[in-house]
């Protein structure tokens, strides 16, 4: 949303400068390049070059031992990609990632929307307090959270199963059970991220005109009907933004399983990014880069789709 808005702003600016008056001051192009030089240098060295190198690397047999002499590697054509599509572990990682994105995104957006709705009406000074509290997990180190939650979800000593035990429920082994491990990560991730969506929704709710609510009220609409007929349509852009932005991030999730489960048990929490990271750890750079290229393609395709979805007036 932000990107789209500023794109248009810069387009306007461009149009204005296109019609230059003859007495306009000279362009300061030299200075401008100089001011951009540090960015361009870092971009060229750490983003453009690695991106191109990464795309090429996927077609080679490069291993960690080739780092000292990267140009001595052999081109192997599509071999890495062929191997990729027959690799059960990689397929498992892809399905896990898909499940994770599809489950976590709506949960995060719904929790963020719920919190924003509760905070938006009739809460006075405490509003700032609750907003701050709900936002804290989002700014906390993911490693700190992952380590704490791993202990929290411990089958015996963890707080969750102890609390369940107090009401007579025998809790599952969570991260040690291949049926509950990934859902546990889904809940933890929604817990960590919903505060961001909440802030976006709170800002968006400011833009819903009071008159609309009052008119609906006069027409006899109840709270739920007003939410469905007035609030939800007005929040559509914000919901789409949160959904797309979150989903793009969740597609790359990896720190949580890396620290909490190492991708196990039985690969049940192995994400696409973690599987690629493991190839990197094993020194198989070419294969890892090929898998990264596939992930990149999926994310780019999703980004293009997002521009269509986020286009206003639709």
């Amino acid at each position: 949303m932000a990107a789209v808005a500023s794109e248009r702003a810069s387009a306007r600016r461009g149009a204005r400068s296109g019609a230059r008056r003859p007495d306009a001051p000279p362009r300061r192009t030299g200075r401008a390049w100089l001011f951009c030089a540090p960015f361009l240098l870092v971009f060229a060295l750490m983003y453009a070059l690695p991106l191109v190198a990464g795309l090429l690397m996927g077609f080679t047999d490069m291993r960690s031992t080739d780092v000292r002499n990267p140009f001595a590697v052999n081109f192997v054509g599509l071999a890495n990609f062929e191997r990729l599509f027959q690799d059960d572990t990689m397929r498992r990682a892809a399905t896990n990632t898909l499940f994770f994105v599809v489950a976590t995104t709506p949960l995060t957006v719904a929790a963020g929307l719920g919190a924003a709705m509760l905070l938006n009406s009739g809460i006075g000074r405490l509003r700032t307090f609750f907003r701050l509290g709900y936002y804290l997990p989002y700014v906390t180190s993911i490693i700190g959270i992952a380590v704490a939650w791993r202990l929290l979800l411990d089958p015996q000593a963890g707080l969750l199963n102890q609390l369940l035990g107090m009401i007579g429920v025998d809790g599952p082994a969570w991260l040690l059970d291949d049926r509950t491990a990934l859902p546990a990560l889904v809940v933890m991730t929604a817990w960590r991220n919903f505060g961001f969506d909440m802030v976006v929704f709170l800002a968006a709710l400011q833009g819903v005109p009071r008159e609309l609510h009052e008119a609906a009220h006069v027409d006899g609409a109840g709270a739920w009907a007003r939410f469905r007929a007035v609030t939800l349509p007005m929040l559509r852009p914000a919901i789409l933004f949160c959904g797309v932005y979150s989903a793009a991030g969740f597609m790359q999730f990896m720190e949580e399983p890396l620290v909490m489960t190492r991708g196990g048990p039985l690969d049940s929490t192995l994400s696409a990014s973690l599987a690629i990271f493991n190839q990197f750890g094993a020194g198989d750079y070419g294969y890892g880069a090929a898998a990264a290229t596939i992930l990149f393609t999926v994310i780019v395709a999703f980004s293009f789709a997002q521009f269509r979805w986020l286009r206003p007036n639709r």
Binding site: L45, M46, Y47, L49, P50, L51, A53, G54, M57, V67, R68, P70, M251, Q252, M254, A272, S273, I276, F277, F280, Y285, G288, A289, A292, T293, L295, F296, I299, V300, S303
Partner: peptide, 17 residues
């Protein structure tokens, strides 16, 4: 827009070289 994991290996190779 470029995901971190895509850059990770080549960035490391760059830094190492």
């Amino acid at each position: 827009m470029v995901p971190a994991i895509v850059l990770l290996i080549p960035q490391f190779v760059t830094v190492a070289s």
